[in-house]
Design a protein around this nucleic acid. Structure first.
Length: 574
RNA sequence: CGGGAAUUAGCGCAGCCUGGUAGCGCGCCUGCUUUGGGAGCAGGAUGUCGGGGGUUCGAAUCCCUCAUUCCCGACCA
C-alpha cells in the first residue's frame, strides 16, 4: 500500500476522553473514531488489524470442524419468550418494535436463534455432534461503555454453539474448543491464561474464561504458585481455615465509638488490626416469592465480599445488591457502619474465616457503638457458615498445592457447557438410538474479536506507540525513503523494493509522499506499530546499504543491498 | 442506575471568578526556503462558545433547564 493512496490519520495528542492506553493509541494511530458512547467506526488501518484477528479465528474454527453460519442481528421476541429470557434479561437487551408494532430485540447473543435452527434441521442423533459458529455484530446496551473498544455497546463476537446427544459428547467438543481457543490465542501472539469461571447469566455448569494478562484488565484472576490451578476470582474457592476457633476469653462489652463508620477508623480508634474485626454487609435480593428481603453477610474486616458466592450461599436465583442506606436505616434503625451479628434480626451467613474469629470487634446495631469480646456460639443467634469472600493473595490454593497470587486479566474468550437449559425450554429434541426423543446437550463458545485488538495493544506498546505481534499487524514492513523527491536513486530503489515485496506476498506500507519529513514518517510508523521498517537514503546507498529496524529493537542495522533479499526472507515472517 | 466532572475551531486548551468586538498551541490551505527523528518565514481559512429559556442596554461569562460525554461503584466477548 502506498501511503499517498491511503488514510493515515495519526494524531500527536490523544483526545481528552481516552483513559486507557489502548484507547488512546487506537485513536492516535487512526484506527477507530467514536460515533457515540460505546459505538465506534473502524478506519482502514484499524480494520486491517480487525480482519487479521478475524481470519485467525475463522481458520481455527473451520479447522476444528465447526460450520460457519450467519444469523440476524434483529431477533423476534417470541424466540426469547420461549427460552424465558425475554423477561429475565434487563435493560441490556435493546428492544425495538417494527412498523407493525411487533417486538424484536438486537441480539446480544444467539442461543435462541441457533437452537431454533437446529431443532428444525436436525432430527437424529446420527447428525450429532454439530457445531455452528458465526462472526458477527452483537449489541448489548451496557450501563457504562468504557475503555474504547474494550467495552462497547456494539461489538464483534465469534459465537459458536454445539449440540450433542449426551454430556460425554459435549465434553469432547468442549475439550476441542478449549484446544482451538488455545491455538487461536497462541497465534495472536498474546500472553493469556485459561481460567475456571462462573457461568453467570448464560447458565450452565462447566466454564472457562480466556484472559489476556494486562494490568488494566477489568477482571482479577488467581493462580497457584505450584500447580496449574487458575480461576476467575469470582469462582476461586477460599479454603476454610485449618485452625479451630480459639475459646472465648473476654466478656462481651459495648464500647462508645463516636464517628467511627469504617473498618479503618475502627482499627485506629481501638488500636487493633482489621483481621481481628468483623465487617457486616447488608444485601438485598428477591426471595423465592419475589419479595425483596435483606440478608446479613459477615466477613472478616480485612476481606472483601464475593457477590457470586454470596448469592449461591443464600440459595438465591436473582443477583444480590448492596442494600441502600435508606433500606438499612428503616429496617435496622442504625446506619451501615454500625451493624453487627448480635441480635441482628435477619438471615445471616458468616464467612468461614469470620466464623473462626473469637473475642472479635463488631458493630452494635446502634449508631456510635461497637461491641468488643464477641464470640459466635456464646453471643450470636442462628447463622450459617459458608465461603463468601474473595481470595486474597497468599491464600492456599484450593487444590492444596501452593498459594494463590492475583493478576489482572482482560476476558477475550469464554466457553460454557450449557447442558439442556435451552434445548428443554425450546423443545430442541432429536431421536436417540432407541427412537426416543431426547433434549440435546449444548455448549457455547465466545471470542471478543474487537476486544482482542484492544487487548493486544494493552499488552504490546511503548512510549512511541503500538508494537503489533507479527500475526495481527496492519502491515508487516514499512519502506521509508529519505528525500525521495530529490534523489532518483532513492526513488528507484524504494519502488523496486516495494514492487518486489508486494509480489512476494508481503503487506508493505510505502511512505511515498514526496515531501514528507523523515521525523514525521518514522513517528507515524512507530505509532502505528509496523513490526519491520526499512529506511532508504542516498547516504546509505552510497555505501551500498539500507537501514533496517525491528519495532521491538532500539537500534538500526545496516544491511548491504546485495544481502537484502536474504535478510528479509530470514527475518520477516510471511 | 447512583455519585463526581466536563462541553469554546478538526485535536489539545485559555478566557468565565470581576458581563463590554472570540483567543493560544497543534493540525489544515497558499507561497518561498528547508529536508538523516514531528522544520523556518510570510500569508490564509475554520466558531451558532452543546441546545433552550431567563436576568441585563449588553451574556462564552450570572441564573434555570435539557442534552451529550467522561470518570468512580453493581454486568459481560
Amino acid at each position: 500500500m502506498r501511503a499517498s493512496q491511503y488514510l493515515i490519520s495519526t494524531k500527536k495528542e490523544s483526545p481528552a476522553d481516552a483513559e486507557v492506553i489502548s484507547h488512546q493509541l487506537m485513536l492516535r494511530a487512526g484506527m477507530i473514531r467514536k460515533v457515540a458512547s460505546g459505538l465506534y467506526s473502524w478506519l482502514p488501518l484499524g480494520l486491517r488489524v480487525f480482519r487479521k484477528v478475524e481470519a485467525i479465528v475463522r481458520q481455527e474454527m473451520d479447522r476444528s470442524g465447526a460450520l460457519e453460519i450467519m444469523m440476524p442481528v434483529v431477533q423476534p421476541a417470541d424466540l426469547w419468550e420461549e427460552s424465558g429470557r425475554w423477561g429475565q434479561f434487563g435493560p441490556e437487551l435493546l428492544r425495538i418494535n417494527d412498523r407493525h408494532g411487533r417486538e424484536f430485540c438486537l441480539g446480544p447473543t444467539h442461543e435462541e436463534v441457533v437452537t431454533d435452527i437446529v431443532r428444525n434441521e436436525i432430527r437424529s442423533y446420527k447428525q450429532l455432534p454439530a457445531n455452528f459458529y458465526q462472526i458477527q455484530t452483537k449489541f448489548r446496551d451496557e450501563r457504562r461503555p468504557r475503555f474504547g473498544v474494550m467495552r462497547t455497546r456494539e461489538f464483534c463476537m465469534k459465537d459458536a454453539y454445539s449440540f450433542h446427544i449426551d454430556s460425554d459428547s459435549l465434553q469432547q467438543t468442549y475439550d476441542l474448543m478449549y484446544q482451538t481457543y488455545s491455538t487461536i490465542f497462541d497465534r495472536t501472539g498474546l500472553v493469556y491464561r485459561a481460567v475456571l469461571a462462573d457461568t453467570g447469566s448464560i447458565g450452565g455448569s462447566v466454564s472457562h474464561e480466556f484472559h489476556v494478562l494486562a494490568d488494566s484488565g477489568e477482571d482479577a484472576i488467581v493462580f497457584s504458585s505450584e500447580s496449574d490451578y487458575a480461576a476467575n476470582i469470582e469462582k476461586a474457592d477460599a479454603l476454610a481455615p485449618s485452625e479451630p476457633t480459639a475459646p472465648a476469653i473476654e466478656e462481651m462489652a459495648e464500647l462508645a465509638t463516636p464517628g467511627v463508620h469504617t473498618i479503618n477508623q475502627l482499627c485506629d480508634f481501638i488500636d487493633t488490626s482489621a483481621d481481628k474485626t468483623l465487617k457486616a454487609l447488608i444485601v438485598s435480593a428477591e426471595d423465592e416469592e419475589g419479595k425483596t428481603q435483606l440478608y446479613g453477610l459477615m466477613i472478616r474486616g480485612d476481606h472483601e465480599l464475593n457477590e457470586v458466592k454470596a448469592q449461591r450461599a443464600l440459595g438465591l436465583e436473582t443477583e444480590v445488591t448492596f442494600a441502600t442506606e435508606e433500606q438499612i436505616k428503616s429496617t435496622l434503625n442504625c446506619s451501615p457502619g454500625s451493624i453487627g451479628p448480635v441480635n441482628l434480626n435477619l438471615p445471616i451467613v458468616v464467612d468461614n474465616w469470620a466464623a473462626q474469629l473469637s473475642d472479635f470487634v463488631c458493630g452494635a446495631n446502634r449508631d456510635g457503638y461497637h461491641l468488643t469480646g464477641v464470640n459466635w456460639q456464646r453471643d450470636c443467634g442462628e447463622f450459617t457458615v459458608a465461603d463468601i469472600r474473595n481470595i486474597v493473595a497468599g491464600d492456599p490454593s484450593p487444590d492444596g498445592k501452593g498459594v494463590l497470587e492475583i493478576k489482572r486479566g482482560i476476558e477475550v474468550g469464554h466457553i460454557f457447557q450449557l447442558g439442556t437449559k435451552y434445548s428443554e425450554a425450546m423443545k430442541a429434541n432429536v431421536l436417540d438410538e432407541n427412537g426416543k426423543d431426547r433434549a440435546m446437550s449444548m455448549g457455547c463458545y465466545g471470542i471478543g474479536v474487537s476486544r482482542i485488538v484492544a487487548a493486544a495493544i494493552e499488552q504490546n506498546h511503548d512510549d512511541n506507540g503500538i508494537i503489533w505481534p507479527e500475526s495481527i499487524a496492519p502491515f508487516q514492513v514499512a519502506i521509508v525513503p529519505i528525500n525521495m523527491h530529490k534523489s532518483e536513486l532513492v526513488a528507484e530503489t524504494c519502488l523496486t523494493l516495494y514492487n518486489k515485496l508486494v509480489s512476494a506476498g508481503y503487506e508493505v506500507l510505502f511512505m511515498d509522499e514526496p515531501k514528507a519529513r523523515l521525523g514525521g514518517m518514522l513517528a507515524d510508523i512507530e505509532l502505528i506499530g509496523v513490526p519491520h521498517r526499512i529506511v532508504i537514503g542516498e547516504r546509505g546507498l552510497g555505501e551500498g546499504n539500507v537501514e533496517y529496524r525491528n519495532r521491538r529493537e532500539p537500534e538500526n542495522q545496516h544491511i548491504a543491498m546485495d544481502k537484502l533479499d536474504d535478510f528479509i526472507a530470514e527475518n520477516i515472517i510471511n
